[in-house]
Amino acid sequence: MKEIKDDTVNRNRSFQTESAIIHSLASYWNLTRELTLAQIKLKDQSTILGFLWSFLNPLLLLCIIYVMFSKRFADQTEHYALYVLIGLVHYTHFANVTTAALPVFSNMRQLATQTIFPKSLLVISVLLSRTVELIITMVITMGIGFATGVQQTWALLGLPFVLFLQMLFVLWVSLLLAMLYVFVRDIFHIYQVILRLFFFMCPIFFTINFVDTIRTARVVLLINPLTHLMTYSRDIILEGQLPSINHYLLWLAVHAVLATAILMLFNRIEPRLVERA
């Protein structure tokens, strides 16, 4: 008996015309959009405040942090409340998407194991539905900035590029977690602890200068992608400055390479994920 190799499963690749491939891509986009819309419609549907919770969550957390830390940091940081809010918006998006994407194979088991489409779309639709919240909360944050006297400049046009970078980062982390969860369910509990730790590894309520004297903490902050995403958004909204193009492109390259590599790995082991889900 011959052991199976890649070329022994011939699944109509050589028979697909260009138009068929385009049709497949169009139908995948169609499915991604419908899955995303369904998740947006269902989110907080049974709550009284509904979609408002997307913004209320970081806002309530901001109140707690402001009460606790404003005396220590507010006089060093202009617009401290807004500074914290921007950090919380980035962190909340990261935490929400990754937590929702992690058990996606288990939560949507029938869809994952009994229908034919790239299962990465399940993760991507989670990301897109939560990114709508990110965009809304970011717009509200800018509105608060405007209302509290922060001067808004043309640099705001750079914000979509920051959000795109955030999406790329969250995408590869989510894909990685969704894969790992299929093999080791304990990841769910471990990740909850990691997320709490990660909160303190991001400059949400303190500035990077605060850890200047602690070398390890400074290194951890600087290799944390969320640190740079928060800094970009703060520079744009609070200072009216665009981030350095070279710095941005470097992180874009890092996240693009990681997202592509992990997406390819995800697609490659998809049958095994389906089998184990």
Binding site: M1, K2, E3, I4, T8, V9, N10, R11, N12, F15, A20, S24, A38, K41, L42, Q45, S46, M108, Q110, L111, T113, Q114, T115, I116, P271, R272, V274, E275
Partner: peptide
């Protein structure tokens, strides 16, 4: 294409629809 075989050869010369029961993916609250 949802599972990979351990051994053997498989050729599928078409786009495929797999229907395992009806209503998979439908959501109660929609």
């Amino acid at each position: 294409g949802l599972l990979r075989p351990d051994h053997g050869r498989l050729e599928v010369r078409s786009t495929v629809t797999f229907l395992a029961g009806y209503g998979i993916g439908m959501l109660d609250d929609l």
